[in-house]
């Protein structure tokens, strides 16, 4: 891992910060456009061609707004929590091979799947802290909801993520994607479907978007934030979305692998990655648009009484059925 020009180019430009930023803004636009089409309206249309510059315009606006800090909060916590969450999310993305290998070449190791999931959990703690530090009843309620929901649903998430790891006999994301000659979505579809549902809860989208329920608790944990800090929170939410969608792609759809036709293989890998992730985003939006928001007690009950047993069952099923499926399909 030499600290030379290639390292800096990869970390800062491609596929590092700059590229990830552009990707996140693109997915923000895509999400809004898809949701709008489901609702029979136009979505962003005027900022740039097809409205593609809309997320940038929104962030520029946020950066130019006044940044207010409530007088009685712990200032360090109030300022540091969103930045903590944001940096942990970005760091987690460094371990997802968007162009076939990690951002920092050669940094993948056995167990970096667990590392990614751990980083995402810690980042959500950061979000909880930002709500808690706001000293506002609405933020307090929102923060507790984030914690309740996220911690609850982290368990089935990890259980279900072990499924593809088992199928690849490795906990390294690069190896998991490399061993998908056949996408794991076909080898264990039940894991895939459940993973989608659990991901909706992790990403706090309908029907599980209680932490953001604006009609009940105004803004939830982001009520007191404005200006730059709010931009950080929103960016971290968008990065979390990208991580979630990429997790599905690498675990179940074969990651960045696909037929390479001509030229640089890296660009083709990025292309295939994008196509698959866009499909995942589409499905996630679809689920999000056909359901109302569930109540916190229903979410918690659903988790402990339904999803955890089901995920354990599906993991068991994957292990049992795997040899059969391999012999039949391959």
């Amino acid at each position: 891992m030499a600290l030379d020009l290639i390292f800096f180019a990869r970390v800062l430009v491609f596929p590092g910060f700059l590229f990830l930023l552009v990707l996140v803004l693109f997915f923000d636009w895509l999400e809004r456009k898809i949701a709008a089409r489901f609702q029979n309206r136009m979505g962003p249309s005027y900022a740039g061609p097809f409205g593609i510059l809309q997320p940038i315009a929104d962030y520029i606006k946020l950066f130019s707004k006044e940044d207010i800090t409530p007088k009685q909060t712990n200032k360090l916590l109030f300022v540091a929590a969103p930045i903590l969450a944001f940096s942990l999310f970005v760091f987690a993305l460094f371990f997802i091979p968007i162009d076939g290998s990690n951002v920092v070449l050669g940094s993948s190791f056995e167990g970096d799947l667990i590392l990614v999931l751990l980083l995402v959990t810690l980042a959500n703690f950061g979000i909880f802290l930002s709500g808690w530090a706001s000293l506002n009843p609405y933020s307090g309620i929102g923060a507790t909801r984030v914690l309740t929901q996220f911690l609850g649903y982290d368990i089935p998430l990890i259980i279900l993520a072990i499924g593809p790891a088992f199928l690849a006999r490795s906990l390294s994301i690069v190896n998991i994607t490399a061993s998908q000659t056949l996408p794991f979505a076909l080898l264990s579809p039940w894991c895939c479907v459940l993973f989608f549902l659990v991901l909706q809860a992790e990403l706090e989208k309908t029907p599980f978007d209680i932490p953001h329920a604006e009609t009940e608790i105004v803004g939830g944990y982001e009520t007191e934030y404005s200006g730059r800090k709010l931009a950080f929170i929103k960016l971290s939410e968008d990065f979390q979305f990208l991580i979630g969608a990429s997790l599905v792609t690498v675990l179940f759809l074969g990651g960045a692998h696909g037929p390479v036709f001509f030229g640089m293989p890296e660009l083709w890998h990025v292309f295939w990655f994008m196509i698959k992730t866009i499909g995942v985003v589409f499905l996630l939006e679809y689920i999000g648009n056909v359901a109302a928001r569930l109540r916190i007690d229903q979410v918690v009950h659903g988790n402990w009484e339904l999803l955890i047993p089901l995920s354990i069952l599906s993991l068991a099923l994957t292990v049992i059925v795997e040899p059969l499926l391999r012999s039949v399909i391959v």
């Binding site: 949701a35 489901f38 609702q39 029979n40 309206r41 309908t206 029907p207 978007d209 329920a213 009609t215 648009n289 056909v290 359901a291 109302a292 928001r293």
Partner: peptide
């Protein structure tokens, strides 16, 4: 009611 329950899509469709 759809909007208050978090069901944005129903809200837009009914108003259309």
């Amino acid at each position: 009611a759809g909007h208050l329950l978090g069901f944005e899509a129903l809200f837009q469709h009914v108003w259309r």
